[in-house]
Amino acid sequence: MSTPETDLATYNFAYLDEQTKRMIRRAILKAIAIPGYQVPFASREMPMPYGWGTGGVQVTAAVIGPDDTLKVIDQGADDTTNAVSIRAFFQKVANVAVTTKTREATVIQTRHRIPEEKLTEGQVLVYQVPIPEPLRFLEPRETETRKMHALEEYGLMHVKLYEDIARNGHIATTYAYPVKVEGRYVMDPSPIPKFDNPKMHMSEALQLFGAGREKRIYAIPPHTKVVSLDFEDHPFEVQKFAKPCALCGAHGVYLDEVILDDKGGRMFVCSDTDFCEERREAGHVGELGVANKEAAE
């Protein structure tokens, strides 16, 4: 016998034992059936620290199979250390094909970003979630927030956002900006910048959220309404960057600020490294970029 199961002598396929996978899979199915509702699950200790993506890793491990191609990003980039570490983990325990290309991936595990490229049917986006409860910073008690969700009592959240406006003239939440899913549950989209919020709405991909330490799984099925909370006189709006990406010249994408020297020199470049590379390969050049030789020739 030379199935992948026997090749991985020390670990089960995808690390988790089958009983754990079943438990997570049941939670995922209920999460999909109740969009935006946080399903409690018996999160396991993983060989990486809580807060470093154990929820996302458990969801990915329960979902992934030998036919999948996995992409892992952190802050939009494939080469950040934690993304590298999680990708290597799945290569080791699931022997799975990996890619940095958004388009080629069937499962994308992410921390803090949604890729710029529109996701498609057949793709699964798995979010790593630190605090799944959108009401947690308003009410620390689980026993209370659970009641609020049950009664659809979200007044506190609106009060908080409105206090922001009163104090600062703006809604001061810039990431992990709360959304309402399918008109029912208020949901924490994980600490993605609010710039990414509109991408969740009516996405063609299935979106799964895993919070390991807090032991919750939730989901947004494809083609589901995801609305960022706002007010008539203060409508939701996303960040706008003054300049395009300095390397690839892209407009309307999320940018990282890079400090170039100690004299105030800085540049703004795409946070989504795959998106940026692909544009540069296609010959797009930003003001500090260098023309791609092949494309230029």
């Binding site: 396929f13 995808a14 996978k21 079943r22 899979r25 199915l29 999909i32 059936a33 989901a219 099925p221």
Partner: peptide
Amino acid sequence: ASPVLGAQATFRALMDAMAR
């Protein structure tokens, strides 16, 4: 025939079906 991979494939079918 292969419990680990059989369960994974069936779950994926179920998950996709539930999502669509």
